[in-house]
């Protein structure tokens, strides 16, 4: 489970979506999320869904990857549906059909439709976010964030942006190392008879001390050594630093932006007309 977090959920492939610039994917994700939320009717939501489904086909990610992801959020999905099912809302329309279950909980055709609508939104949201992590490595995402935030340097935040990106890079590098180390320390303390599985909550928290202290000490030592090593490699903050891999938009990126903008404009038009 931990390893999934570590390596993101990147799925190696050379598809159209994989080859898009990570900034394109990150920006389009934001736009699509906005589109999902401004879609007030089934027609616009259907358009967004079509957009997302076609991108899924272009990403060449096996459908079962998405299903695996959905399984994890199924409880949230069901919870949202139930809440919406019984929540009449401030609608003025009169339901054509209604069914009283028990007490005063009533399902109407309107609430049913709303429940399905809300669930569909969440579903699309999850799918499109997952697609980004499936098709983009955490490193590319970090680069994209650094690049997209770089205009902040004009308000004097250049170092902050670089530092944030560097921290993310180092975190990605060291998470697997620290997970492995945690496991080693846990095993070493278990070999000395530590009981990590049983006992009351307080006892279990106390049992973590022999693991957390060595882990902390070793992390500090690693941080110190890494800082020295970085200094030896001429690191001097973000100033004057030029990346080997430069991000470059190409025709595919413009094309993709165009498609999304057309769909977006249509949705806004539908919202105005209907």
């Amino acid at each position: 489970m931990l390893k999934d977090i570590t390596f993101g959920q990147y799925f190696e492939s050379k598809s159209f979506v994989h080859k898009l610039d990570p900034r394109t994917k990150l920006l389009l994700l934001l736009i699509i999320i906005i589109l999902i939320f401004i879609s007030k009717n089934w027609l616009s939501l259907l358009l967004v869904a079509l957009l997302i489904f076609s991108s899924m086909i272009f990403s060449k990610i096996p459908i079962k990857m998405y299903l695996k992801n959905l399984k994890a959020v199924l409880p949230i999905l069901i919870f949202t549906m139930i809440i919406n099912l019984f929540y009449a809302g401030s609608t003025t329309a009169t339901p054509k059909w209604s069914q009283n279950l028990f007490w005063n909980l009533t399902i109407t055709d309107i609430s049913l439709s709303r429940a399905v609508f809300m669930a569909s939104r969440i579903l699309l949201l999850i799918i499109v976010s997952a697609e980004l992590t499936y098709t983009t490595t955490p490193n590319d995402l970090t680069d994209a964030i650094e690049n997209l935030l770089s205009p902040l340097r004009f308000i004097g935040l250049k170092n902050a942006v670089h530092t944030l990106a560097m921290m993310m890079t180092i975190a990605l590098r060291f998470i697997p190392t620290l997970i492995e180390e945690t496991q080693k320390i846990m095993n070493a303390q278990k070999a000395r008879g530590a009981d990590l599985e049983n006992g009351k909550l307080i006892e279990r928290i106390k049992a973590l001390i022999p693991i957390l202290i060595p882990l902390l000490i070793s992390s500090v030592r690693r941080a110190y050594e890494l800082a020295e090593a970085m200094e030896c490699r001429c690191y001097n903050g973000g100033e004057g630093r030029i990346r080997m891999k430069q991000l470059k938009y190409n025709f595919d990126d413009f094309f993709t932006f165009l498609i999304v903008f057309i769909v977006g404009a249509t949705i806004i038009a539908i919202n105005i007309i209907l």
């Binding site: 320390i185 070493a188 303390q189 278990k190 008879g193 022999p210 060595p214």
Partner: peptide, 29 residues
């Protein structure tokens, strides 16, 4: 856990498992 006290295992670089504030308390763990 009783088995683990009968079959002791000293890992590689065991000094990385030290955590107590005194040598006595660490050996006592």
């Amino acid at each position: 856990r009783a088995i683990r006290s009968r079959v002791g295992l000293v890992f590689q670089y065991p000094e990385y498992q030290l955590f107590e504030d005194t040598v006595y308390r660490d050996i006592a763990f």
